Amino acid sequence: KELVLVLYDYQEKSPREVTVKKGDILTLLNSTNKDWWKVEVDDRQGFIPAAYLKKL
């Protein structure tokens, strides 16, 4: 499984997104879309802008 580091706080703006904090380490589920990556946060799955994440 691939992990990503959150570079900036992000507040979800729709039900398909998730809220994260800078410094969080998340499981990356899908990065095929270059703009929005799907991650897992506390048993929730959702999207975050790829620019907010860095692969570890």
Results as ranks from 00 to 15, higher is better:
D43S: 12
E40S: 10
I25M: 06
L28Q: 00
N30R: 07
T19Q: 04
K13S: 11
L5Q: 10
D24Q: 14
P49F: 03
K21W: 11
S31H: 09
Y8T: 09
K21S: 11
E12F: 11
V39G: 00
R44W: 12
T32D: 15
Y52R: 04
E2P: 11
D42W: 10
Q11T: 15
I25G: 00
L26N: 01
I25E: 03
V4I: 05
V41N: 12
T27N: 12
G23V: 01
K1G: 10
P49C: 04
Q11A: 11
L29C: 07
E40W: 08
V4Q: 00
N33D: 15
L3Q: 13
R44S: 05
K54D: 07
K34E: 14
P49A: 03
F47V: 07
W37Y: 05
A51G: 14
E40Y: 06
L56E: 04
L5W: 07
A51H: 15
G23K: 02
E12K: 12
S14E: 09
S31L: 04
K13L: 09
V6R: 00
K34L: 11
W37C: 03
D35Q: 12
T32I: 11
W37K: 01
D24P: 00
K34Q: 12
D35C: 11
S31Y: 08
L53Q: 01
V4Y: 06
G23H: 05
L7N: 02
K38Q: 11
K38G: 05
V6M: 02
Y52N: 10
V41Q: 09
E2D: 12
K22Q: 11
A50P: 08
R16T: 14
K13W: 05
G46R: 05
Q11N: 14
W36C: 08
K1Q: 14
L29H: 05
K55G: 04
L53S: 04
Y10A: 00
F47C: 09
K55I: 12
G23Q: 02
P49D: 02
R44C: 05
V18I: 13
P15V: 09
W37F: 05
Y52I: 15
T27E: 11
W36Q: 03
I48Q: 00
K38R: 11
K34A: 15
K1A: 13
K55A: 07
D43V: 09
E2T: 13
N33T: 06
S31C: 09
K34V: 12
A51K: 14
D35P: 02
L53N: 01
K54E: 11
W37L: 02
I48N: 01
T32H: 13
N33G: 10
R16G: 15
K34Y: 08
Q11F: 15
R44V: 08
D24I: 06
V6A: 07
K21Q: 10
L5V: 11
E12R: 12
I48W: 01
Y52P: 01
Q11M: 15
K22N: 05
R44I: 08
W36H: 04
S31F: 07
N33P: 05
K22F: 05
I25R: 05
A50F: 03
S31E: 12
D42S: 13
Y8I: 09
L29E: 03
S14P: 05
G46V: 15
K22R: 14
Y8K: 12
Y10C: 02
V20S: 03
F47E: 05
D43A: 12
V39K: 00
A51T: 14
N30C: 09
R44E: 05
V18Y: 03
K54G: 06
P15Q: 10
E12C: 10
P49L: 05
D43Y: 10
L29F: 03
E12V: 07
Y10T: 01
L7I: 08
K55C: 07
V39P: 00
W36E: 06
E2H: 10
D42I: 10
E12A: 15
L5H: 04
K54Y: 13
E12M: 15
K13I: 07
D35L: 14
D43Q: 12
D42T: 09
L53Y: 01
Q45A: 13
F47W: 15
L5E: 12
L28S: 02
L5C: 07
V6T: 03
K55N: 06
P49V: 02
S14A: 10
P15K: 09
D35T: 14
E40F: 06
K55F: 07
V20Y: 05
Y10I: 01
A50S: 13
L5N: 02
D42R: 10
N33C: 09
R16S: 13
D9L: 02
S31M: 08
V39F: 01
E17N: 06
L7Y: 02
W36S: 04
N30W: 08
V39D: 00
L3I: 08
K38L: 15
T19F: 03
D9R: 03
T27H: 15
Q45W: 09
L28D: 01
W37I: 02
D43I: 08
V4N: 00
D24C: 07
A50N: 04
Q45T: 14
L28R: 01
V18D: 01
W37G: 01
V39I: 10
I25Y: 05
E40K: 11
D42V: 12
A51Q: 10
L28G: 00
N30I: 07
Y10R: 03
S31P: 05
I48A: 14
F47A: 03
L3W: 14
Q45F: 08
V41I: 13
F47Y: 15
L26C: 10
L7K: 06
N33V: 05
Y52M: 08
I48G: 01
Q45C: 09
I48R: 01
Y52H: 12
P15G: 11
L26K: 02
Y52E: 01
L29G: 01
V4A: 09
K13F: 06
L3R: 10
W36I: 04
R16H: 13
V6I: 04
A50L: 02
A51P: 12
A50H: 04
W36M: 07
E2S: 12
F47T: 04
T32S: 12
N33S: 12
Y10N: 01
L28W: 01
V41Y: 09
L56T: 06
E17G: 11
K22A: 13
V4E: 00
K54F: 12
T27Q: 14
V41P: 00
Q11L: 15
K55M: 09
K54N: 06
K34N: 12
V18A: 05
A51S: 15
V4G: 05
K13C: 08
E40C: 09
L3S: 07
Q45K: 11
Y8D: 09
T32L: 10
D9T: 05
R44A: 06
L26I: 14
K54H: 12
P15C: 08
V4F: 05
E40P: 00
V41C: 08
V41G: 07
L29S: 03
L56C: 09
V18L: 14
V20L: 03
K54L: 14
V20C: 08
P49I: 02
G46M: 09
D43H: 14
S31Q: 09
Q45S: 13
N33H: 12
K55V: 12
W37T: 02
D24M: 15
I25C: 05
T27R: 15
P49M: 04
Y10E: 00
D9V: 02
T27M: 12
S31A: 14
V39C: 07
E17P: 06
E40N: 06
I48D: 01
W36F: 08
P15I: 10
Q11H: 14
Y10S: 01
L26Q: 02
K34R: 10
Q11G: 08
K22Y: 05
S14V: 05
W36G: 02
P49W: 03
D35K: 15
L3E: 07
Y8Q: 15
D9I: 01
V39T: 02
K22G: 07
A51I: 13
T19I: 03
K1W: 13
K21H: 13
D42C: 10
P49T: 01
K13Q: 15
R16F: 14
D24H: 08
P15D: 13
D35R: 14
Y10P: 01
V39W: 01
Y52V: 14
L28I: 05
K21D: 03
D42P: 09
Q11Y: 15
D43W: 10
Q45H: 10
